[in-house]
Simulated scan of single mutants.
Amino acid sequence: MAERYSSFDRGGTRWLLQRITAAFLIVVLAFHFFQLHFVTHAYEIELAGTEARMQNPAYFATMVLFLVTAAFHGINGVYNALVNQGIEGTQKTVVKWGLIAAGIVLVAQGIRVATVMAGVSIA
C-alpha cells in the first residue's frame, strides 16, 4: 500500500486555514448561488442590479471576503499540489512568490471592481 504524502503539516497554520476557508467558501458559495439563481434568475442579472446589491455594505463585505478567501484557498491549494508533486529549491521559491504576486494582483483588481460596482471612489 502506498504511503500518503502531503505538504501540509497536520495541525499547521496553512493546513488549518485551508480547511477554514473551504468551510467558509461552501457557505458563501451556497449563498451566492441561491441569491443569483433562485432570488434573481441568471437571465435577470444586469449591471444596475449588481450595482444595487454591491451598495449594501453587508453584501459588499461578503463578496470582498469571498474574493479574498477564494484567492487564498486556490493559491494555497495550487502551491501545495505542486509541492506534493516534488517541486523543490529555486523552483519552489519562484512558484511561491509568483503565486503570491498573482494573488495580490487578483485581489487588488477584484477589490477595485467591487468598489466601482458599489459606487465607492478611492482617490
Rank of each mutant, 00 (worst) to 15 (best):
I100C: 01
R112C: 09
A70G: 04
M117S: 14
A42H: 13
V105M: 05
L106H: 06
F24N: 03
A108F: 13
V116Q: 14
V113T: 15
F24A: 04
A101D: 01
L16I: 15
A108V: 10
G119P: 03
H32E: 04
R19G: 00
L106V: 15
G77T: 00
H32M: 07
A118R: 05
F33E: 02
A42P: 03
V94W: 11
F38N: 01
A70P: 10
G86C: 03
T62G: 09
F33T: 04
A81F: 12
A48Q: 14
G103T: 03
A102D: 04
V107K: 08
V116P: 11
Q91M: 00
F33N: 01
H73F: 07
V113Q: 12
L65Q: 12
P57M: 01
H37C: 00
N80C: 11
A81H: 12
Y79S: 02
A71P: 11
L47P: 01
M117K: 07
K92R: 07
Q85I: 11
T40W: 12
A102L: 11
A61Q: 09
I75K: 14
A52T: 07
Y43A: 15
F34W: 02
I75E: 13
R112V: 10
G119Y: 05
E44S: 09
I100L: 05
V64Q: 07
Y59L: 07
K92P: 01
V68G: 03
A108R: 12
G77C: 10
A71L: 11
F72P: 01
V39L: 15
L65V: 13
G49K: 09
I45Y: 03
K92L: 10
F31H: 02
N76P: 11
L36A: 01
Q35D: 12
R19L: 13
Y43V: 03
F72L: 10
V95W: 06
I20H: 07
A42F: 12
V107T: 12
A114E: 15
A101S: 09
A118E: 00
F31D: 05
V27K: 08
A23I: 02
A22K: 00
M63F: 15
N80D: 09
I100W: 01
H73C: 00
L99P: 06
V78A: 13
G86W: 03
G77P: 08
I87A: 10
N56H: 02
V83E: 06
I26S: 12
T50L: 11
K92A: 05
R112Y: 14
G110Q: 07
Q55N: 14
V64Y: 01
A108C: 11
F33G: 01
V28D: 05
A52G: 10
I104K: 08
N84D: 11
H32V: 08
L106W: 08
V83T: 13
A42S: 09
F31A: 12
A101V: 04
F38E: 04
G77L: 13
T40I: 14
A58V: 15
V64H: 02
G103A: 06
